[in-house]
Amino acid sequence: MAFRASVESGNVLLRFIVRVGRESLGLVSTFGAMAIFFFFGFINIFRRKQIAEIVSHTYSIGARSSLIVMLVGLFTGMVLGLQLFYTLVKFGSVGALGSAVSLSLIRELGPVLTAIMITARAGSAMAAEIGILRISEQIDALYTMRIDPVRYLISPRIAAAIISFPILTAFFDLIGIFGGYISGVLLLGTNAGTYLYRVQFPVDIVDVRGGFIKALVFAVIVSTICCFQGYFCHMRPQGFGAKAVGLATISAVVISCVMILISDYVVTSFLM
């Protein structure tokens, strides 16, 4: 108590350290809670009666996101083609355009941008939907009906994300390479044969595998964070009811995006 009193009246530095300590502890416990949440969500995927739910969520998270992912993939590829063309021209190595486009897409941009797009489209929806179920006591109702809410609501979404992310990433890569073809070959006049040959020449199975590993990691991160934020939106200290759902959705999207980029660095450094 004496310590607390001295902190409250104490100097700025002490208060700062206390604050940092408290926030860090909160952060660690949140990550721990998320890990446990994911664990239960994941093992419950393999329970009975899950197939129908998983299929329906794969449809809404995966299939319904495919168009937007492909659109973004197309323009990302086109921009890459454009930018890399003018960079490579300076070094007289336009022939490497195909390699540059395909490698940057498969290793890096494909998984990351796909994950961010799905977060924006489906992750926000997960958080908001589950948040509303929570505040209107529908999750409690599931519990009273002996339906485990984690099994019924969370597991299918995690499973759907794990299925959808790699497939959508593959779509993104493919369309992106095609986008590079449009800008590099059709608009700027690089040789088509060289571009297509150089697309496949340097790409190793290691690159493709790395891209998929990233996609899987992002799937786990995005689905866990978004579901977690919605599921525990009633425990937010800053707001209740509809406001809590709004805040949960914001946190879900922001934390997911940040975590995608952080984990991207970590995974890349392991893969290199």
Partner: peptide, 25 residues
């Protein structure tokens, strides 16, 4: 348990709501 605000799953039809406990458990 019958909730004060009913706590029906509002994205499901009446039939699906009533069938849910039987289907799931």
């Amino acid at each position: 348990y019958l909730f004060q605000n009913n706590a029906l799953l509002d994205s499901m039809t009446v039939f699906e709501n009533v069938a849910l406990p039987l289907r799931q458990t």
